[in-house]
Design a protein around this nucleic acid. Structure first.
Lengths: 151, 151
DNA sequence: GGTGACGTTGACGTTAACGTCAACTGGTCA
DNA sequence: TGACCAGTTGACGTTAACGTCAACGTCACC
C-alpha cells in the first residue's frame, strides 16, 4: 500500500504471467524496465504489473516489430505520460510524434514496394513451375518458428 | 576481362561512388560483400560494381529499412539469382517468398495501428495547445538527421 | 527442516552490423 | 623522388538487446 493510485481492485500480473502472455522472457521484461520503458510497482522485492504496464508492454512489442529501438520506444511511451506538462514540452512532444509518423509513412512505402517485388517474383516462380507441369500450390509453407518458447 | 558477361559498355561504379550515392560507408559495402550480398567484379585488387550490383544495393538498403537482417536479405536476393535451378529449389524459393510476404503484411498492420495511435495522440496534443490559445503549427519539425555523412 | 516454485540481483557472454585504425599497394602529378 | 590519393586487408572496438549462469531470498507445503 504505497501510493494507492491504482483503482485498488484493478487486475495485476506477475512477471511470468506477462512473459507467457506475450511470449517474451522475464529477462527481457526486466531489461525494458532497466531501460525506463516500464515502471512496475514493487511488493517487497517482487514486481507487480498493472493494466497500464500491460498496455505498455503491448506497445513496446508492437513498436519493436515496427522497427523502433528501445530508446525510441521510451520516447514514444513518454508521450502518453504527460500529465500537467509545460506548454513547451507539449509542443516538443507533438513534433516528436509527427516525426515518428513521417518515418512510419516512409517505411510503409518501403514495405509496399518490397511486397510488390516479391509478388512479381512469386508469379514468375509459379509460371516456371506451371511450365514444368507442376502445381505451385504443392509448395506448402512451413510455419516459420522464430524464438518461440519451448515450454 | 574475366567473364565478359556484362554488356561491355554498361556503366560501372567504384566503391566510393556507390557509398556516396547511397549514403553508406565503403566499410558497410564491403561488409555486405563479406556476407554474400554483393559479388562485385575485381580489377586487380579493386572492386568494380555493375548496374546489377547497384540494384542489389538498393534492395539491400530498402530491405534493411523494412527490418530484414542481412542474412534474410541474402536469401531474398538469392531469389533473383536462380538461373536453371532444379524444380525443388524453385518450389522452396516460392515458399520463402510467400513467407516473407506474410511477415511484411503483418508488419504493415503494425505500422497502421501505430500510426493511428500516434495520430490520435497528435490531435490530443493539438487540442491541448489550442485550449491554451496557441497555434499547434508553431511546432516546427526539425529534420531528424540520422547517420548522415558529415562529408 | 528440506525441497521446489517463483522471484531477485549482478556479472559475464553473444550476435549483428558495422566503426575505427593500422599497415600496405598502386597510380599520378609536381 | 616524394607526396598524395583511392583502394585494400586484417584486427580489434562498439552498441543494442537480450541470454545464461550463479548465488541468494521467501513462501507454501509435506
Amino acid at each position: 500500500m504505497r501510493t494507492g493510485a491504482e483503482p485498488a481492485g484493478s487486475k495485476t500480473y506477475s512477471i511470468t504471467q506477462l512473459s507467457e502472455e506475450f511470449s517474451v522472457t522475464p529477462r527481457a521484461i526486466r531489461f525494458y524496465e532497466d531501460r525506463g520503458l516500464l515502471h512496475p510497482r514493487r511488493e517487497g522485492q517482487t514486481r507487480i504489473y498493472s493494466q497500464r504496464d500491460w498496455v505498455r508492454l503491448l506497445l513496446i512489442l508492437r513498436g519493436k516489430r515496427v522497427g523502433f529501438s528501445l530508446a525510441e520506444l521510451r520516447e514514444i511511451l513518454d508521450l502518453y505520460d504527460l500529465g500537467d506538462q509545460q506548454t513547451e514540452q507539449i509542443r516538443l512532444t507533438l513534433v516528436l510524434a509527427r516525426n515518428k509518423m513521417v518515418a512510419l509513412e516512409r517505411q510503409r512505402q518501403d514495405i509496399d514496394q518490397t511486397m510488390a517485388e516479391l509478388g512479381t517474383a512469386c508469379t514468375y516462380f509459379e509460371k516456371l513451375l506451371a511450365e514444368r507441369g507442376l502445381d505451385p500450390e504443392a509448395a506448402i509453407a512451413a510455419p516459420r518458428q522464430r524464438r518461440a518458447r519451448t515450454a
